[in-house]
């Protein structure tokens, strides 16, 4: 079986600044991968390259059969297979929760309103927010907004989901409710790449941990590397993080 996500020697530069210095890793379908590393190590950039929010300078990225680095690729066909959830939720404030979820179903999947509504109800139930469908984002707590953002992404039935520090803006109680939703997703077999500082979550849910350091993949392993790191850099990172 081919990998769901495969990066090979990926280089990403912003002007003269080389942020990804030839990184490689692969993720099998159904795996949950925790991407960890210090601030500025290139985690977000790696994630954004995977759904081509950023274009890479060299190397290859393959996602569910799409050649991401190919300039001829239509990013929309890629993005139908790849969902993304951001730290700042990025819900559309002028739309209700339901409309947020239904927008892409109607515009991209060309569903009619009632079909889209059914999907929205289902995914909102999945994240425990069925009763909020007609509320506006500003009426929801941060944790609830983030769960809506997850539902919005989930509604498109992606094959891979990318999470960029989705609980960093939340207090511990709200963090818990978001992480539970993500663990449910993981159990249901979703392929997930999770940039996170929640080491407890990474230990529980991650099949694979990738430690990034100064634009390189510095250490890779299963969740046990979080308790018994091999490299001094990862050890130091873990010590500081606790």
């Amino acid at each position: 079986m081919p990998a769901a996500v495969k990066l090979e020697n990926v280089v990403k530069r912003f002007g003269a600044l080389e942020v990804l210095k030839g990184i490689s890793f692969d993720i099998e379908a159904g795996q949950v991968v925790a991407l960890i590393g210090a601030s500025g190590s290139g985690k977000s950039t790696a994630l954004r390259c995977i759904n081509r929010l950023e274009q890479i300078q060299s190397g290859t990225i393959e996602v569910c059969g799409h050649r991401v680095e190919d300039p001829a690729l239509d990013p929309r066909s890629l993005r139908q297979d790849v969902g993304m959830v951001f730290q700042s939720y990025n819900l559309f404030p002028h739309m209700t929760v339901g409309e947020n979820v239904m927008l892409a179903l109607k515009r991209v999947k060309r569903m009619d309103r009632s079909a889209a509504r059914k999907v929205a109800e289902r995914v909102l139930r999945q994240v425990g927010l069925a009763e909020k469908i007609d509320n506006y984002p500003e009426q929801l707590s941060g944790g609830q907004q983030q769960r809506v953002a997850i539902a919005r992404s989930l509604a498109m039935a992606p094959k891979v989901m990318l999470f960029d520090e989705v609980t960093s803006a939340l207090d511990p109680k709200l963090t818990g409710e978001v992480l539970r939703v993500m663990e449910d997703l993981a159990k249901a077999g979703m392929t997930m790449v999770v940039v996170t500082h929640e080491m407890a979550f990474a230990r529980r849910a991650a099949d694979k941990v990738i430690f990034m350091h100064q634009g390189h993949v510095h250490e890779v392993g299963d969740a046990s590397i979080l308790t018994t790191p091999e490299t001094p850099e990862l050890r130091e990172f873990l010590d500081h993080d606790l």
Binding site: R79, A104, R107
Partner: peptide, 25 residues
């Protein structure tokens, strides 16, 4: 700009993102 990104991440075209997400705001 994150509103544009959120819309494009959902596979909307740039035009759809503009019309449905950006212009109303």
């Amino acid at each position: 700009n994150t509103q544009f990104e959120a819309a494009e991440t959902l596979a909307l075209t740039r035009w759809q993102s503009l019309v449905d997400v950006i212009l109303p705001q």
